[in-house]
Write a protein that binds this DNA or RNA. Structure first.
Length: 429
DNA sequence: TCTGGGGTCCTAGGACCC
DNA sequence: TCTGGGGTCCTAGGACCC
């Protein structure tokens, strides 16, 4: 970590979509404009995306949807189930536009990207940011905010200001020390990237309440209480880039697929169907990154919000040799489930985790005779993945996942799949 | 009964992010 | 009636080895 050298002259932009899921819904349903709109998590549970009008109603992020449905309706607003297929598709459109503005793009999440701007020092970056915003909106309909500064952490700060104060018109460039200091003085420490609830509470107890006070804190103190990660944050606030731009998304080291059920589930048969389906999804993700897993875990839990006997447990087993072959993973998972299952409980959630993930090319050849890479099994998986990619998820599926699926999650307020299903294409009249 | 120093690896738990 | 899902990294402590 460079703590003594010259401040580097890095420049990075953070482009962040405003109220992303809500904005996606509005692109295809303009009636939602200027009204309160919130998007719910899986199973129509918590509010995970809020329009400005919802924020103005003081409805917090993560709040259970049912508690606020009345209030939202009263103000002429709408609650929607999440439509991840739509959001993923809109996200890749936004990212394609961003790629036109810089050769270095790190897609950080479904609605955020960092752009490396080191070759852009002599440009009018203030206007460059506004141009990004304008273009993304024209081409995708999604409003974004742009923050530009010396490090990722400072670009986040700039982005917050761009989003919050309309005077900036959605884009702010923080490059000279005086402006940075001013902005940090106005930023509560809890808003700094890397400072969560626990650290916020701790820092406040020690009279560190603004980003500026955090920037000027003692290195030793920070490293001791916030670990090396916290120290990086502080150095980033000082303008030393410690968190590099990461253009190639790293392979996942663990893959989890878990869902809450639409209703309480107590039969082993329903759980077997759900677990089969989750394994299928997880294994697809695993094969997509050309990896195999060496460990499989299955977990079950009852409803923690409900009175009554609780049961939360997991079981795992090693996979040897490591594999990505769905039928074998399902078989192994169902065996684990048999051991894990206890009758008499009302289960609310189940899931599987694949871990000890390695690239398939690293599996020793000596295991070839039992290796999924070696024989028809891999070809079969490739064929299935291709079919399901082209014709939609579960064009081909495993009988163990069931057909009726009583346990399926609830998505009562789902918008059409405007961009990903032919039948749901918007109609032009 | 007394009883060193150092290294590695693994795991659980806790912090953070979106 | 109804309270999400999916990740990463770091550290402390225990097991084990010489």
């Amino acid at each position: 970590m460079n703590t003594t050298g010259l401040k580097n002259d890095n420049i990075v932009a953070l482009v962040d979509c405003n109220n992303f899921y809500v904005s996606c819904e509005r692109v295809f349903n303009p009636k939602l404009n200027n009204k309160p709109v919130a998007v719910l998590s899986n199973n129509d549970g918590c509010i995970v995306s809020r329009s400005q009008e919802i924020k103005d109603l003081k409805i917090p992020m993560g709040a259970p949807g049912f508690k606020y449905e009345g209030l939202i309706k009263k103000h002429g607003g709408t609650l929607l189930s999440s439509n991840y297929a739509l959001y993923a598709d809109m996200s890749s459109r936004v990212m394609e536009v961003l790629a036109l503005f810089s050769p270095e793009v790190e897609i950080y999440s479904i609605d955020e990207a960092f752009l490396g701007l080191n070759g852009f020092k002599n440009r009018d970056l203030e206007n460059f940011g506004k141009k990004i915003k304008r273009t993304v909106f024209q081409w995708t309909g999604i409003p974004v905010s742009v923050g530009i500064s010396q490090t990722k952490t400072l670009a986040k700060v700039a982005n917050h200001f761009a989003k919050r104060y309309s005077a900036f018109q959605g884009s702010l460039c923080l490059l000279d020390d005086e402006r940075i200091t001013k902005a940090l003085a106005k930023t509560p420490v809890s808003e700094v990237w890397g400072i969560g609830r626990q650290y916020d509470k701790f820092l406040r107890q020690h009279k560190i309440e603004t980003a500026l006070q955090l920037r000027d804190a003692e290195d030793k103190f920070i490293e001791h209480y916030l670990t090396s990660v916290g120290l990086k944050t502080v150095l980033e606030l000082r303008g030393y880039a410690c968190i590099d731009l990461d253009e190639a998304p790293a392979n996942k080291k663990s893959i989890v697929t878990s869902r809450s059920f639409g209703k309480q589930v107590s039969s082993l048969n329903d759980l077997q169907e759900a677990i089969s389906e989750y394994v299928t999804r997880a294994a697809e993700k695993l094969r997509k990154q050309k990896s195999v897993a060496g460990l499989l875990m299955v977990f079950l839990s009852t409803n923690r919000f409900k009175e009554g006997p609780q049961y939360n447990n997991s079981l795992s087993t090693t996979l040897f040799p490591p594999t990505a072959y769905t039928p074998e993973l399902i078989k192994t998972a169902l065996n684990l489930l048999d051991d894990l299952y206890l009758p008499g409980f009302e289960f609310k959630k189940a899931g599987v985790m694949l871990a000890d993930i390695i690239p398939e090319k690293d599996v020793p050849l000596s295991f070839m005779d039992t290796n999924y890479l070696d024989d028809k099994r891999k070809k079969l998986m490739e064929a299935m993945d291709k079919l399901n990619r082209t014709y939609g998820q579960d064009t081909l599926f495993y009988a163990s996942s069931g057909i009726k699926k009583d346990w399926k999650m609830k998505r009562a307020k789902l918008s059409p799949h405007y961009t990903t299903h032919w039948n749901d294409l918007p109609k032009v009249k």
